[in-house]
Design a protein around this nucleic acid. Sequence first.
DNA 1: CAAGGCTCCTGATAGC
DNA 2: TGCTATCAGGAGCCTT
Length: 294
Amino acid sequence: MPELPEVEVVRRGLERWVAHRTVAEVEVLHPRAVRRHLAGADDFTHRLKGHRLGVPSRRGKYLWLPLEDTGQSVLAHLGMSGQLLVQPHEAPSEKHLRIRVRFADTLTSAAAEAGGTELRFVDQRTFGGLSLHDNTPDGLPDVIAHIARDPLDPLFDDEAFHQSLRRKRTTVKRALLDQSLISGVGNIYADEALWRSRLHYDRATATLTRPRTAELLGHVRDVMNAALAVGGTSFDSLYVNVNGESGYFDRSLDAYGREGLPCRRCGTTMRRRPWMNRSSYFCPKCQRVPRAVS
DNA sequence: CAAGGCTCCTGATAGC
DNA sequence: TGCTATCAGGAGCCTT
């Protein structure tokens, strides 16, 4: 499940292998992969053709490649199983190949280094996709204007986040997953940060003190930076970097997926609870159920 | 308006 | 063995 660290690993790969290359041809093999491009697959294809890509940016789990001189960007979201792979032309098509982008490689040094490669969007579960959008004055695609800055963004406002939590009538894990409050956090890193903070997922956000919020944000940043340092979290081949390689952070997870295993802090058996059509993993001793569940 | 629930999708795996 | 049920879950959209 690609969250902020995994998406950032992909962004870095695109910066190295795809930035400054000119699109020659785009092939959409599954319409659902461009469903956010409302004008359709043909329009998507034609609008990309002939344009040079700039340096990719990221906010939370979204990343985008600016089309130079157009004021537009190709927006990408990996969903649950999306991959952006840089592959040699001759590599056989992946089973779930959805979009192929070929480049008009010239004699630039960047193109020479990239060799005869193309960009492929591969996505088994089809929750992800690519689309083209106008940029806002801030330089981000207009359709993600509602996405909050992420905790690794230098301009993320810790105090405003705390005040939002105090105002809301919701619980802490819901808030962590609310991309309009803080972006980039998904189910895995939410559980990890809550475990590190000794907070139960059903804790009401309005009860968090300023130091408690600061501690939580610190743990969110720590766990994301630690994952980034080892290439992200992979459980299987569904999440990989642009070269198809897995990250190693799954070996460092303290909460997610550890049902029935001893808590790494106190030894108590970790539990899993169904929660919002997914799962929450927690230590019943370190992360006590709050008295008043809102 | 805010909060919470539903839904899209495929494949691995468990259970009968 | 082969079928069905369950689970994985991001985020737009809908309902309350």
